[in-house]
Design a protein around this nucleic acid. Structure first.
Lengths: 231, 231
DNA sequence: TTGATTGCATTCATATGACGAATGAGCGGC
DNA sequence: GCCGCTCATTCGTCATATGAATGCAATCAA
């Protein structure tokens, strides 16, 4: 078991030595020792940088390196972000996200508990509050939380990783596209409908409403004619 | 535009300088110059290692570094591979793949051309050949090509990246689970059904057959009672 | 005894220099 | 024109030095 070769002596070392999340790794200097990795500190740091970028270790200056819980998000986020910087469209990743949410929708809804629905209701109320009272704030945290809550209990690192990365990307590169008030108004009307369907155990209706509500994003909105602040 | 911060001076440099796939980057030594990155060769190499791991540059020893076409696959493959090495189940990634394929199924089928169907038919014929004549080879390349061909024209880097990464992972960690002959036999019978449906433009029937055929993988197979070689 | 301060070892961050090996371009002899 | 030599380039690797921040332990005073 764990005979997996990750193409990196450092990563293989972490796995084969059985380090667990929270464990502290030997110092870089110690890793160069031939009883550990037997390579120069230079090479160790190169591969350490990879592990840090992927979010698998936390290197705290002057305090050492700790293994983190595995997460899919950092790899997806960085790669997709680089893709956007290279000219790839945000919409192509949004498409993936829409399809993934749609595909997992019903089974995710089936796992929702009463307190999750409460959270979603709070998101809707908070968003309406922000949208109704000037100065208008964009209810971005509510938007993120609303959708991620639906899939909270899926217990699939990869699915959740993609969804989380989507919202990170959204804040980084996509947010400016959807600042149209009427768009936001309609989106949150849909959210209310979606939640209502879920509360009534009409998961499929909720899913259809979700799909409809993603179609709102297809149209590039006109510029908002009033001032707006991020919230 | 491209005001995206990638959290890496090196990556930001590539993007901001507008390097295109195929372009040669300055030598590491030159990058340390204050007219370029203005940092030590050590740091350059750390971040270069990240870019290489993500598959964005190709570092050929003694010949320099070239920018590659963007690809999502390397990031997904490495991160998921590390996840498996850390104990995450292959099935959780397989679930993502199944849902993604299912979600994009119909629109992908609609883009298929005659020559794509020919390729899929060749896969089926080749697989049957391998399965029917001893010594039995596992038609893994055919399996990969058959499924990837369906989504060939989707034109979505992220979707294709996940699907490709799935097959890389399958070969790396998942293949040993599905070496049961009767399983393979049934899978390829399904493939024939799927292709037939697609040829008749019954994409939804094809999709349902695909979903059924993924259910075959749920059961851990018994050991094959005869010798088998990978093909 | 207790608590605060000081001093030191650890450790990461960064920079620099050195050497080796392979590549490729330029040059000259045949 | 072809072959072989030389040499600058460039990556790969290692070693070392310096700085700065952290944590720990010893020290010292109340």
């Amino acid at each position: 078991m764990s005979g997996i070769n990750l193409g990196s002596d450092f990563l293989n070392y972490i796995v084969r030595q059985g380090f667990q999340p929270g464990d502290r790794l030997p110092s870089i200097q110690e890793l160069t020792n031939d009883s550990h990795l037997d390579m120069s500190a230079n090479k160790v740091r190169e591969q350490l940088e990879v592990a840090r970028t992927m979010g698998w270790v936390e290197v705290r200056s002057k305090r050492g390196t700790r293994v983190k819980n595995y997460a899919f998000t950092p790899a997806v986020r960085l790669s997709a972000l680089y893709a956007m910087a290279c000219g790839e469209s945000f919409e192509s990743f949004a498409s993936l996200r829409n399809h993934v949410e749609s595909a997992y929708w019903n089974e995710a809804c089936a796992l929702l508990r009463a307190e999750d629905l409460d959270v979603m209701q709070v998101c809707i109320d908070g968003a309406n509050e922000k949208l109704d009272s000037p100065p208008i704030h964009i209810p971005n945290p509510e938007h993120r939380l609303f959708h991620l809550t639906v899939f909270k209990h899926l217990d699939n690192t990869f699915v959740l990783g993609i969804l989380e990365a989507y919202w990170d990307l959204y804040e980084e590169v996509g947010i400016n596209r959807y600042m149209d008030y009427s768009y936001l108004r309609r989106v949150w009307d849909y959210h209310a409908i979606i939640l209502e369907h879920i509360k009534n155990n009409r998961f499929d209706d909720a899913r259809l409403a979700f799909i409809e509500h993603t179609r709102l994003l297809r149209h590039e909105p006109g510029n908002a004619s009033w001032e707006m602040e991020r919230g």
